[in-house]
Design a protein around this nucleic acid. Structure first.
Lengths: 195, 195
DNA sequence: GACTCATTGTACCGTTCGGTACAATACTCC
DNA sequence: GGAGTATTGTACCGAACGGTACAATGAGTC
């Protein structure tokens, strides 16, 4: 059988989509093998720890992407407001404007949460903290910033759930637009039921 | 073996907790049997359609509870603002102030969503719609009400995810408090990092 | 007591699960 | 070409999966 995934990044991305689509329990090795074009021999060669190691590596891979594309702008941007805008754009892009679901959020709800509790807590904790820092630097009090940040990350997660439930990605787009408005950033999309 | 669940409501509640805790895939008949004290013979007697029928019945059961305790106040309360307050109280009570997770939200993210897509879409759709109606009756424009309602339900769902991820139920309490403030309702709990 | 029907425990079915063993093949460097 | 390592396909394992069959038991009615 031909090897489809040519590098570890691509391989993790493929496996990640299987976990994202089927959850930890639902992602069988047969599905992972079909999605990657790899047999069990190869999979266990790259991930001797089996399914659990695969999922852990996928979470770390996603975490790394968010670190580079979502958290870094929040942390490093000279203009904190611009950093927040970049965060929202990266978020929109990652979740394909609501057509993709948050794997780490889904893992947080299943029983798999126990296996990856540390990684999951860390991911969301850093998101909220970096956003709160950026908000504080842009003029909000510490308390305001903490509340706003927690609310924003929760809104994003909830909007992903609702968008999936309604099979309507625009739910997610509207949520992001509301966040832009709340943070005083320019918006271009239309509000719901505008006339 | 002694029958623990004495009526269908209690039985559905027990099965529901297994699905809530383990997800659709993770909730094995062995777990359900252990939680209810019923063997396969009994389970398939009450639910000839097997696991899928059980999950469907659990969703319908939860949906009915929300209809009576969450949607009804929104729909029927003479004072729409009071109805919204009742909704938030019932929600807080149902999710045990963030220690419980939303089974229907979790199902929306897994592959089980395909099996129950109609029920899931209906549940969230009615929640948003009834809340939007109440907000419109309390003076908001239709467009404002729709945005506020969608944002509120998303915030609740997202806060449940974050609370579970952080293993910190207070995340959910703070989200509900912010919603009360946003809707101009009295709050009694403390804000985050208040001094 | 006899009939009825709901409820239950148990044995069993074929399938799939995650995981292991291992020999065969490909690749790399000398 | 040969040695050594990386990768792969395949056969197999025991356990657990969802589901079925069915006889035994329970409770209520006449």
């Amino acid at each position: 059988m031909r090897r489809i995934a040519s590098d570890r990044d691509g391989l993790l991305a493929m496996i990640g989509e299987v976990f994202r689509e089927h959850g930890y329990e639902g992602a069988s090795l047969a599905l992972i093998g079909a999605a990657t074009g790899l047999g069990k021999g190869s999979l266990y060669h790259f991930f001797p720890g089996g399914k659990e190691e695969m999922a852990g590596a996928v979470i770390a891979h996603i975490d790394g992407w968010f670190e580079d594309n979502v958290f870094a702008p929040l942390r490093d941007s000279a203009d904190p407001r611009a950093g927040i805008g970049q965060m929202l754009e990266a978020t929109d892009s990652y979740f394909r404007s609501g057509r993709r679901v948050c794997l780490i959020g889904a893992f947080a709800l299943e029983e798999s949460r126990d296996l990856f509790a540390g990684q999951i807590k860390d991911y969301f904790g850093r998101w909220v903290r970096h956003l709160a820092d950026a908000l504080a630097r842009s003029g909000h009090t510490e308390a305001e910033a903490a509340e706003l940040a927690e609310d924003a990350v929760a809104s994003i997660q909830g909007a992903l759930t609702l968008a999936r439930a309604a099979a309507d990605a625009s739910v997610f787009s509207r949520a992001l637009r509301r966040l832009r408005m709340r943070f005083g950033l320019p918006t271009d999309s239309e509000p719901l039921a505008a006339r």
